[in-house]
């Protein structure tokens, strides 16, 4: 309450800083970007070393390998989360099967906000690729995907998405109580509500002048969902053409959704 009880409290005066321990707990589980980068590079090096000179991976396969390694990292992140551990493995599987591609898209977007140069896409390996280079070789679907994702990246940059907000959005994507066949729906809801409240408090606390930042961030989630569904469809079509590397977590997740 404000110091003058008779005055109507302004939003900032009734705010309390988000409970640092909860937000800190969410941040604790964040993987280290340089470690992830090193892991992906090492995996690509191993892959290259295991192939003959005339059996090189094409660009698309390399991108898939990167996505696969990033997906492994995201599963590991979820698995190490204390909140996720509160759920049975059955529920953990159902939630990840539902949102894995959203997590990949959100992870990619956050990397763009943090590191990408104008007109470039920043890869998990630390390389920057000119968007124009991709678009000259891309088909209709990939062109649409790249431009939609770039547009969303620009919006998130304009919103000054920070790491705390990114982590909260990841948890909101993961703990989705609307996923069918979740057994402990109430637990998922509780976590979702708590993260939602923490995100709201954090945005109001760090950007009191931008009262609608919280709403603007939440509005990006359906866009991320829509892009991720298009990514899945695109990857599945490529998979049917035999373009995807086999025996990967990526193909297994695609199979699970289409079986």
């Amino acid at each position: 309450p404000s110091s003058t009880p008779s005055s109507t409290p302004t939003p900032t005066s009734i705010l309390t800083a988000p409970t640092p321990s909860f937000l800190a707990q969410l941040l604790e589980g964040e993987p280290d970007e340089s470690q992830l980068c090193a892991k992906v590079l090492a995996s690509l090096q191993r892959e290259k070393a295991s192939r003959g000179k005339h059996d090189r991976l094409n660009t698309f396969s390399i991108m898939c390998k990167m996505a696969d390694q990033t997906l492994f990292g995201l599963v590991e992140w979820a698995r190490n989360s204390a909140l996720f551990k509160e759920l049975k493995v059955e529920d953990q599987m159902v939630l990840l099967q539902s949102c894995w591609s959203e997590l990949l898209v959100l992870d990619h977007l956050c990397r763009q906000v943090a590191y990408s140069r104008e007109g470039c896409i920043y890869l998990v390996t630390g390389q920057q690729i000119e968007v124009s280079n991709i678009l000259t070789q891309a088909g209709v679907t990939l062109t649409s995907l790249v431009s939609r994702t770039q547009d969303l990246g620009v919006k998130l940059k304009a919103l000054h998405l920070d790491t705390q907000e990114f982590v909260c959005l990841k948890y909101l994507v993961l703990f989705n109580p609307d996923v069918k066949s979740v057994q402990d729906r109430r637990q998922v809801e509780r976590t979702q509500e708590r993260v939602n409240r923490t995100l709201m408090d954090h945005t109001l606390y760090t950007h009191p002048g931008h009262s609608d930042k919280f709403g603007q961030l939440l509005l990006r989630l359906p866009e991320i969902r829509s892009i991720s569904l298009q990514v899945e469809e695109y990857l599945y079509q490529r998979h049917l053409l035999g373009d995807l590397p086999c025996n990967s977590l990526l193909t297994e997740m695609l199979h699970a959704k289409h079986s």
Binding site: E90, Q97, M253
Partner: peptide
């Protein structure tokens, strides 16, 4: 669906000491 996700189950179920 769950049957298809043997790798995911392994990743989630694996014992950290293995």
């Amino acid at each position: 669906k769950k049957k298809d996700n043997a790798l995911l189950r392994y990743l989630l179920d694996k014992d950290d000491n293995t």
